[in-house]
Nucleic acid binder design. Structure first.
Length: 152
DNA sequence: GCCAACGTTGGC
DNA sequence: GCCAACGTTGGC
């Protein structure tokens, strides 16, 4: 079992939206970055645990927990000219983009701010702090445990 | 294959 | 809204 951090803009779809549809799962769509795509397609597995991270908003940080509810599958939006995620270069037999489904697990009592994460000596190697722009990123077991034990 | 131009992400 | 980081595109 592995741990991940998924970014989302809460004004578009945040932890509250995920909670509202629980116990239904939500397709985590719109991943259009190759590094994130490769992680999704090749490494994210059903049952993995996920930090839901709110970005581009007033309160930036880890807002809650979710669980991966499906292995990666082809994101149909890439073939839909009406979709904002349409990719004219994607072919049916050689899809470019994938997505997984996630299901709500819980909302943290208090969002863990990015600022607080940055202050932790134990977290200096977190992908989030080293490579800010990746929208699907691995979290090491010890980072996961540290965050939930000391910061949540 | 290099690299400049350009576009996007995302914190502030 | 600004700007740094960085991914992608396209000319050569």
């Amino acid at each position: 079992m592995a741990y991940w951090l998924f970014k989302t803009e809460p004004q578009v779809f945040g932890i509250d939206d995920l909670a509202a549809i629980h116990p239904k799962s939500e397709p985590w769509d719109g991943i259009r970055n190759y590094q994130a795509r490769n992680l999704l397609r090749d490494q994210v597995a059903e049952g993995d645990e996920v930090f839901i991270y709110h970005s581009s908003c007033a309160q930036v940080g880890i807002a809650g927990l979710a669980r991966v509810a499906s292995a990666a599958y082809v994101d149909p939006d890439q073939f839909d000219p009406e979709s904002k995620y349409y990719d004219p270069k994607a072919e049916q037999d050689t899809p470019r983009w994938y997505r997984v489904d996630v299901v709500y697990q819980r909302t943290l009592d208090k969002l863990i701010p990015l600022k607080l994460l940055k202050q932790q000596e134990a977290l200096v190697d977190m992908v989030l702090l080293k490579q800010g722009r990746l929208s699907v990123q691995p979290v090491r077991q010890e980072e996961w445990d540290y965050i939930l034990t000391h910061l949540a």
